[in-house]
Amino acid sequence: MSGSSFEDKSVIVTGGGSGIGRASALRFAAEGARVLVADLDADTAEAAADEVRAAGGTAETVVGDLSRQEVVDRVAATAADRFGGIDVLVNNAGIMDDLSAAAEVSDAVWERLIRVNLTAPFLLTRAVLPHMLERGAGSIVFTASEASLRGSAAGAAYTAAKHGVVGLVKSTAVMYRDRGIRVNAVAPGGTATGISVNPSPGAHGPAVMGTYAANIGRVAEASELAAAIVFLASDAASNVNGVVLPVDNGWAAV
Results as ranks from 00 to 15, higher is better:
214 A>N: 09
36 L>S: 02
31 E>D: 12
92 N>F: 06
4 S>G: 15
8 D>K: 10
234 S>D: 09
212 Y>P: 04
184 N>G: 08
251 W>Y: 15
73 D>I: 05
30 A>Q: 12
11 V>R: 01
201 P>G: 07
129 L>V: 09
190 G>M: 14
67 S>C: 14
204 H>K: 12
232 L>F: 01
141 V>C: 00
225 L>M: 09
142 F>K: 09
198 N>D: 14
209 M>H: 13
120 A>M: 08
233 A>C: 09
160 A>Y: 08
79 A>E: 01
219 V>G: 02
241 N>C: 14
97 D>C: 06
239 N>T: 13
174 V>R: 15
113 L>N: 12
226 A>H: 06
176 Y>A: 04
137 A>I: 06
178 D>P: 03
175 M>E: 15
102 A>T: 15
119 T>P: 03
196 S>R: 15
32 G>A: 12
148 S>K: 06
188 P>W: 01
75 V>F: 01
59 A>E: 11
37 V>P: 00
43 D>Q: 15
250 G>D: 05
112 R>G: 07
9 K>H: 12
201 P>S: 06
119 T>A: 07
153 A>M: 00
13 V>R: 02
7 E>F: 03
61 T>W: 03
170 K>M: 03
26 L>N: 00
82 R>T: 01
173 A>W: 08
45 A>E: 05
201 P>F: 03
247 V>H: 00
122 F>W: 14
215 N>Q: 13
37 V>Q: 02
224 E>Q: 11
243 V>E: 06
91 N>P: 03
126 R>A: 15
146 E>I: 13
233 A>L: 05
174 V>T: 13
1 M>R: 13
75 V>M: 01
238 S>H: 11
18 S>G: 08
243 V>F: 06
124 L>Q: 09
178 D>T: 12
19 G>V: 14
248 D>Y: 01
171 S>D: 13
107 D>C: 05
200 S>Y: 10
76 A>S: 02
179 R>N: 10
119 T>L: 10
150 R>W: 03
177 R>T: 14
116 V>K: 00
210 G>H: 02
116 V>F: 00
46 E>L: 11
125 T>H: 02
24 S>D: 11
151 G>E: 05
238 S>A: 14
135 R>C: 05
105 V>G: 04
230 V>P: 02
37 V>I: 11
249 N>K: 11
42 A>V: 12
6 F>R: 01
186 V>Q: 04
169 V>G: 03
214 A>E: 12
65 D>P: 12
235 D>T: 14
74 R>Q: 12
